[in-house]
């Protein structure tokens, strides 16, 4: 039981971070459910049909999604705002329908035979990704990403290769979503295309928005709360989606910038200087 909580929470934290990484450069992606599907199916085929060990299969699946992410990012990131949201929704929808039509992986019936994912895999991954993001959050790279997010045009006029950064973030997000998807598939033992539709993509974004998208702690906080709160509202089990939906609506009304809305400066104040307001 506790294992299930750890597994679900860990995977959702990874997925939330996968959206957060893309958001670092200012793009909101609803394609991560699709990237997750690529990871789940590629790794499942590799372990089940080719007998490749899970860890290697997950890495390969991540690499496949990374390449896919980069290839679609070049055209997709020409759009912005709601247009980009629609394009990423379209990517997820297309991936789902394509998998449904591939008989090799069971089509609409789903694919099974995977096993072997343990909570330790996921906990380790959360720690690794978290450490990497923490490192970035205090770096010059974070500063450049913040600049891109604030004003792409000005960032470019300071010598920052905006397209390069945005595409790299998109690829990295796809990678993490796919690795999370790999472990998800090998933990659930059975996946269907409908596990990876638009609904999961929206939920991942909700974790990030509810937690706060301006610092790296927001997404895991959002993911943890959104994963565990429904689990512990057993009394309301029957009304879970309704309670959940109302909770989201209310949270957005009360804290539209998320639970942890602050941004962490990349360069701390020096102790010997007076603080400014």
């Amino acid at each position: 039981m506790i294992q299930d909580y750890v597994m679900q929470t860990g995977i959702n934290i990874l997925l939330a971070w996968s959206v957060y990484i893309i958001l670092l450069s200012g793009s909101l992606s609803f394609a991560n459910g699709g990237f997750m599907a690529i990871g789940a199916y590629v790794s499942a085929v590799l372990t089940v049909k080719f007998g490749i060990p899970l860890i290697l299969a997950a890495a390969l699946a991540g690499a496949a999604a990374f390449l896919f992410g980069i290839v679609v990012a070049y055209p997709a990131l020409r759009t912005r705002g709601l247009y980009l949201i629609l394009v990423t929704v379209g990517i997820t929808a297309s991936i789902k329908v394509m998998i449904e039509s591939i008989d090799y992986v069971g089509g609409i019936q789903g694919f099974t035979g995977m096993s072997g994912a343990s909570p330790w895999h996921v906990v380790t991954l959360v720690l690794v990704v978290g450490a990497a993001l923490w490192l970035i959050s205090h770096s010059r790279l974070q500063r450049m990403l913040d600049a891109v997010r604030e004003d792409e045009l000005v960032a470019a006029s300071l010598g920052i290769n905006v397209v390069h950064l945005k595409v790299a973030c998109f690829g990295a997000g796809a990678f993490i979503a796919a690795v999370a998807g790999s472990f998800y598939a090998h933990y659930l033992l059975f996946v269907r295309p409908e596990d990876f539709g638009i609904l999961p993509s929206v939920f991942i974004v909700l974790y990030v928005v509810l937690g706060g998208m301006n610092n790296l702690w927001g997404p895991p906080v959002g993911a943890t709360i959104m994963t565990l709160v429904p689990e512990f509202t057993r009394g309301l089990a029957q009304w879970r989606p309704t309670v959940f939906g109302i909770l989201i609506v209310l949270l957005l009304l009360v804290r539209p910038d998320g639970l942890l809305p602050f941004r962490v400066p990349t360069e701390r104040r020096l102790r010997n200087r007076p603080n400014n307001p």
């Binding site: 600049a147 604030e150 004003d151 400066p265 360069e267």
Partner: peptide, 8 residues
């Protein structure tokens, strides 16, 4: 970059 500090 309005949400970044002067130094940043």
């Amino acid at each position: 970059f309005a949400r970044m500090s002067v130094l940043e």
